[in-house]
């Protein structure tokens, strides 16, 4: 991960000046999908890069040690060894970016990764994921326990009530407390963008989250009705750019929820490259929160290498 974000003071003046024009953002978001494309070897290389940025995720009520175990093995070997070898990429240590689970599964994930000899971080969602509608005290305790269990990244959710009622100071204070409780663990702040009501609120919440010390800002929990869309991403990465320009601090970005196809993954990468630059194309500043995406990427890689479309059973499931 890149250098930590120490946070800054809350700058309410900056927040009050935020202007987001939704129709113009939608136009740009459309264009992002058509202005760039990568083909052939470029496509394969970019897809592999996308793999290294995936937070391979399972966030389900029926998660148990066994499916978390399987996921961890897949994180270690995201692409079939022979396919990597065919591209001369087998010795590049290609793994997923992290494993992302509920707090109660952190121990399972830490153990499984240890067993498979994989050093990628375990990320835990926390703070009353997904809705954040629990008491601050329990939300803080959740963070503390997840860190104690070995999670080195904490994906906190923000209190959407505070955004919708315009209580930016209270929001700042809460996130600062989460930040403090995270300690050494990196904090990724989930805005729950689908709950925030407007792009302007998303921009403002992004700024508050960064001022309060978030190492990443993340779009959504995957449980809202609208998740990681390009317009939302555009607003958030513009906030990251602005924050970087004004403070010199680089904050990472994690779109999550609804990202399924390899083609989308490429668009996400080019969005980062275009809006923020090459620094934001690596897992220390960019993550894709997804569960089924990896499967589609592996199929595309299979096709790139063999020229044939894979059957589901050709590739090991996650």
């Amino acid at each position: 991960m890149s250098a930590r974000n120490p946070g800054t003071d809350l700058d309410l003046g900056w927040i009050s000046r935020v202007q987001v024009n939704q129709p113009a953002v939608l136009r740009r978001a459309e264009q992002i999908q058509t202005r760039r494309t990568v083909k052939k070897d470029w496509q394969a290389a970019w897809l592999l890069r996308a793999v290294t940025c995936i937070d391979l995720t399972t966030l389900s009520g029926d998660d148990t040690a066994s499916n978390v175990h399987r996921l961890c093995f897949k994180a270690k070997h995201p692409i079939r060894e022979d396919l990597l070898r065919a591209m001369n990429m087998h010795d590049q240590g290609i793994t997923a970016g992290a494993i992302c689970v509920y707090p109660a599964r952190v121990c399972d994930a830490v153990q499984a990764l240890k067993a498979v000899g994989c050093k990628i971080p375990v990320a835990s969602v926390a703070t009353g994921f997904p809705a954040g509608q629990t008491h601050l005290k329990t939300r803080l305790e959740e963070v503390r326990l997840a860190v104690e269990d070995g999670a080195s990244e904490i994906d906190i959710v923000i209190n959407r009530t505070l955004v919708l009622t315009g209580q930016w100071e209270a929001l700042y204070d809460e996130i600062c407390q989460f930040h403090k409780t995270c300690g050494e663990a990196h904090m990724k702040t989930i805005l729950g963008t689908g709950d925030l009501g407007s792009l302007t609120n998303i921009y403002k919440a992004s700024l508050v989250a960064m001022m309060a010390g978030s190492d990443f800002i993340k779009t959504s929990t995957g449980k809202e009705s609208v998740n990681a869309t390009f317009p939302v991403a555009l607003v958030m990465v513009r906030a990251i750019r602005d924050f970087h320009r004004k403070t010199g601090i680089k904050v990472g970005f994690k779109p999550a929820g609804g990202i399924r196809s390899a083609k989308e993954a490429l668009t996400w990468l080019s969005l980062m490259k275009e809006e923020l630059g090459a620094d934001w194309l690596k897992p220390d500043l960019f993550r894709l929160g997804a569960s089924s995406l990896l499967g589609d990427i592996e199929r595309q890689i299979y096709h790139h290498v063999t020229g044939r479309y894979a059957a589901h059973h050709d590739l090991p499931m996650a």
């Binding site: 083909k39 070897d41 470029w42 890069r49 590049q92 990468l269």
Partner: peptide, 19 residues
């Protein structure tokens, strides 16, 4: 003019290629 690039090179440079 990236014709000469390999997947490995591109993976590290993350350049655009011809399309």
């Amino acid at each position: 003019t990236g014709e000469a690039a390999s997947v490995r090179d591109i993976f590290s440079s993350m350049q655009y290629g011809p399309a």
